[in-house]
Computed example of a mutant assay.
Amino acid sequence: MSYHVDQNGYYGNFGGAFIPEMLYPNVEELRTNYLQIMNDPSFKKDFDQLLKDYVGRPTPLYFAKRLSEKYGTRIYFKREDLNHTGAHKVNNTIGQILLARKLGKKRIIAETGAGQHGVATATVCALMGMQCVVYMGEIDIARQAPNVARMKMLGAEVRPALSGSRTLKDATNEAIRDWINNPLDTHYIIGSAIGPHPYPDMVTRFQSVISEEIRKQLLEKEGRDYPDHVVACIGGGSNAAGSYYHFLDDTRVNIIAVEAAGKGIDSGESAATSALGREGIIHGCKTLLMQTDDGQITEPYSISAGLDYPGVGPMHAHLYASKRGEFISVTDDDAMNAGLELTRLEGIIPAIETAHALAVPQQRPFKKDEVVVINLSGRGDKDLNTYIDHFNL
């Protein structure tokens, strides 16, 4: 069994392109051109150069000595928090804006939840001199104010999504409406491994620089180019997809995906899609989706603005259904405590999304000689107010 996308845009039973007719030309233009453009030597040269000189790659693979001692295993962090803009998101936005330029697009739209993808999109638009509109749920605008300010400083227009739960799902709906109305000059930079084919594969390929570097760095540090476990948080799941990519078919590597259980899986306030979801279609692809018996999307909840999405990317749905991935759900409280623990033991303040992945060693034992790589997908600057409120700091 392959865990990569097939020629029709499916991961097993999940994926595809379920789109309104108005969007067909845009998506088809991308599908027929993305691999050719990405494999072009001049594109690769520009992409690699910007990742190195602008983003600051390669990011370090850091051995967390004190945390490893506490949990009796060998824990490494892939430090995506050290990228320019503070998260993994910029790997994808650099790639997609170069691709949009090759396709002759003049205007960029994006959706954002935690604001990191919005900041990364606004950043590359400023870099390339392109118009930028970012859609963001009204609730997320309130809880991620520093990122909203960054986007505006960078010249982006931030448009609030006022419908539904007024979070990530609704921002995505608004962005898709914009794209339908502006099909010719606009490229939609989707921030996660979700959406109609080829987006999940394209975003994953741009993010696969993460697992590519992990292999090289582990060879240097451990004398082998694979970990025993690779751990990442998933909402839509681009940081996870990038962390897993080069290990998907390597059965020596256990893939661990960490979802947001919110106030508890059965509390009615959760975003644990693997536990609560079933097959459905959202934002252009077939995947696992939290929904009612009559197919209405269930509103997700998480303390993390980046994980409260009612579905997962189709790659992750396939990893779950095929049992290739081990799925763990982490509550708000456990995630917040894990974030504080990392801060106190290693001097790194993580994003709350990342803190969900950090809770795994508390919930699941690892062996003494095992190598565990956790993708530290973002830094916690944007979440300081949430930390302050939670811990009464």
Rank of each mutant, 00 (worst) to 15 (best):
H390P: 07
M22N: 14
K106F: 03
G325N: 07
M153L: 15
E69H: 06
G295P: 13
T186P: 09
A87M: 06
G313C: 07
I189M: 14
L358P: 02
G295L: 07
M22L: 11
M130N: 04
R278F: 10
V372M: 04
V158S: 05
H88A: 00
Q362P: 04
P310T: 11
L345V: 06
E346K: 00
Q207L: 07
A261R: 03
E370P: 08
E28Q: 15
G9D: 02
R278C: 13
A142S: 12
F77H: 12
L103P: 08
G164N: 13
D48T: 06
N13T: 11
A171N: 07
D249G: 05
G311R: 04
D81E: 10
Y76C: 03
A351G: 12
G237H: 02
I189A: 08
S243T: 14
V5H: 09
E138N: 09
G347N: 03
S304F: 08
R252H: 04
T354K: 04
G195S: 02
R205C: 02
N182I: 12
D225W: 13
G137Q: 05
Y34W: 15
M136T: 02
E80Q: 05
V258S: 04
V133R: 11
M128D: 02
V372D: 12
V27P: 03
G118H: 05
P365Q: 10
Y62K: 01
